[in-house]
């Protein structure tokens, strides 16, 4: 448990928002700013936050779909972004795989399921011919599909089944680390549980490490070992799942958790809601200092002057807030 698999150091990712006449960028969307965290081997790190907080950008930068503006990401000590632009790119890419949010958009409609799942095996030159076929059948069985499904096309499957195909594709190259970017948010409630259970089974079987990105906070608590909370591109709190949900420290985490609806009228009637006012500020022009201060009930003068640093306290509970000493 204590081995660090993925180490993210001071990661920032800016996207160009506008350019001047000469094509030089004039303003940036600060999608992720100065984020550092570690993912330990065999664990599931959940990332939660609202739309536009940069959680998907973090995931995509880790697997190398985006190049970081600043900072580094390393996998087992090796820098990911140097590796994937070097001669051993394929070995690094094999270690990192991704499951996407929309199972309708992430599968090529013109390829059969067998081709979709077999493609990574071909690209990475892992198996060929009969071997590849039996490996594809094996993968489909593992994710709860039939080998006969290999000759069908994605449109013949339901959302939950398509997400299983996406999972089989990610598993094909025996990765160490999988980024699950909102893998269940497009699915129905009764199907979500099926996919989450499948991910958990695969994790215990292969010792996989997950980065689980979602906005469904109850599901994140269920699947994650530790949970990180992001707001407007910054990491505000990170702690073990139970610790975070029982003992949230950051005002934003508290508000976020109090907003989760609970499927029990008695529990709903008892709880106190913290309703945040206003909207999330624009990431093009974020507030100075602490980014949450414009909506924070406890904002002080200090919050506007300097950004709080991440401080690790008892129970490995890390918070970025001036209120917490």
């Amino acid at each position: 448990m204590s081995d660090v698999l993925i180490n993210v150091q001071n990661l920032s990712k800016y996207f160009t928002a506008s350019r001047n006449f000469w094509g030089n960028p004039t303003s940036f969307v600060r999608a992720v700013e100065n984020v550092s965290f570690q993912v330990y081997k065999g664990e599931t790190l959940g990332i939660v936050g609202e739309t536009g907080c940069g959680k998907s950008t973090v995931g995509r930068t880790i697997v190398g779909l985006y190049k970081p503006t600043k900072g580094t990401v390393s996998c087992a000590g090796e820098d990911i972004h140097t590796a994937i632009h070097g001669p051993n790119a394929m070995t690094m890419r094999r270690k990192l795989q991704m499951i996407f949010q929309d199972p309708y958009a992430s599968l090529n409609p013109r390829m059969t399921v067998g081709d979709i799942v077999g493609e990574p095996l071909a690209i990475h030159k892992i198996t060929s011919g009969k071997d590849r076929q039996s490996r594809v059948y094996g993968l489909l069985k593992q994710v709860g599909l039939n080998p006969e499904h290999a000759s069908r096309f994605p449109h013949e499957f339901s959302g939950g089944q398509r997400q299983r195909i996406g999972i089989a594709r990610a598993l094909a190259v025996n990765p160490e680390f999988i980024v699950c970017d909102e893998p269940i948010s497009a699915l129905d409630v009764s199907i979500q549980a099926q996919v989450v259970n499948l991910l958990e089974e695969l994790q215990s079987e292969y010792g996989l490490t997950y980065l689980f990105i979602a906005h469904d906070l109850s599901m994140v608590r269920h699947i994650s070992t530790r949970v990180a909370v992001m707001y407007l591109g910054a990491l505000v709190e990170i702690a073990a799942a139970d610790e975070l949900y029982k003992n949230p420290q950051h005002p934003y985490t508290k508000a976020l958790l109090s907003a989760i609806p609970i499927a029990d009228p008695a529990a709903e009637a008892k709880r106190q809601r913290i309703i945040l006012t206003g909207d999330v500020p624009s990431p093009i022009n974020p507030p100075s200092g602490c980014k949450f201060r414009t909506r924070c009930r406890f904002a002080m003068a200090k919050c506007a002057e300097m950004a709080p640093e991440l401080i690790t306290g008892a129970n490995n509970h890390t918070i970025a807030c001036h209120l917490v000493k």
Binding site: A193, S218, I260, I262, A263
Partner: peptide
């Protein structure tokens, strides 16, 4: 099939 955020896993 819905996890309860206020209960143990």
């Amino acid at each position: 099939s819905v996890p309860r955020p206020d209960k143990q896993k």
